[in-house]
């Protein structure tokens, strides 16, 4: 992803800054696949995440520590243990699973009400665009389930992507870095 890396290099910071990125979403949304795709690893061997995975996406100035946390309902209560000092929240939605839009919307809205995540910018990845019947990013942001249009207290963005092909991931991260840069 040359553009994203260029952008990182242009940033003014002299010292490498540690950024904490939280990757959340329902089970089977594709969080681990996104993380593997971003760190250029294969995704043929993924199993459901118990606990969490951490990966550092590094360059000269920035070190994105991405925390990918399991999405099953039973382990969602543990999400809050990872909220502290989060710079950006990335929320992943399976755009092809319409039966769970309501559930994923409820989880997102609960996250946005968390005190420790106040004003933390949120990027929504509308994942699995490679599947037939996937809802588009604009359908999702305008729909009632996610209710993104009502977010007023923080920068937000929705980005269509496919973790399998890698499409859209770079654009998403570019937004993340730009947003943080303008904040600091």
């Amino acid at each position: 992803m040359p553009y994203f890396l260029d952008l990182l290099r242009k940033l003014k910071h002299k010292h490498q800054r540690e950024l904490r990125v939280l990757l959340l979403g329902l089970d089977n949304a594709g969080k681990t696949t996104i993380l593997k795709s971003l760190s250029k690893e294969g995704h043929e061997n993924i199993s459901p995440t118990r606990g969490f995975n951490i990966k550092s996406l590094k360059n000269k100035e920035w070190n994105l520590n991405v925390w990918d946390i399991g999405g099953q309902r039973k382990i969602r209560p543990y999400w809050r243990n990872y909220f502290e000092n989060t710079d950006v929240l990335i929320y992943v939605v399976d755009s092809s699973d319409r039966t769970r839009f309501e559930e994923t919307g409820e989880e997102l809205n609960e996250l946005l009400e968390e005190e420790k995540l106040q004003r933390v910018p949120v990027l929504v990845f509308a994942n699995k665009q490679d599947l037939v019947g996937a809802a588009s990013a604009s359908d999702l942001s305008d729909g009632d389930a996610l209710n993104l249009q009502s977010i007023r207290d923080r920068p937000w963005q929705i980005q269509a992507c496919s973790a399998l092909s890698g499409e859209g991931l770079e654009d998403g991260l570019t937004w993340v870095v730009k947003t943080i840069n303008s904040k600091k």
């Binding site: 089970d27 089977n28 995704h43 043929e44 061997n45 993924i46 199993s47 459901p48 999405g71 099953q72 309902r73 039973k74």
Partner: peptide, 18 residues
Amino acid sequence: WGELGFQGDDPATDFRGM
């Protein structure tokens, strides 16, 4: 299915890469 330790109400999505 949760009693068996699957994630949701359909194990089909849990086998993933395996």
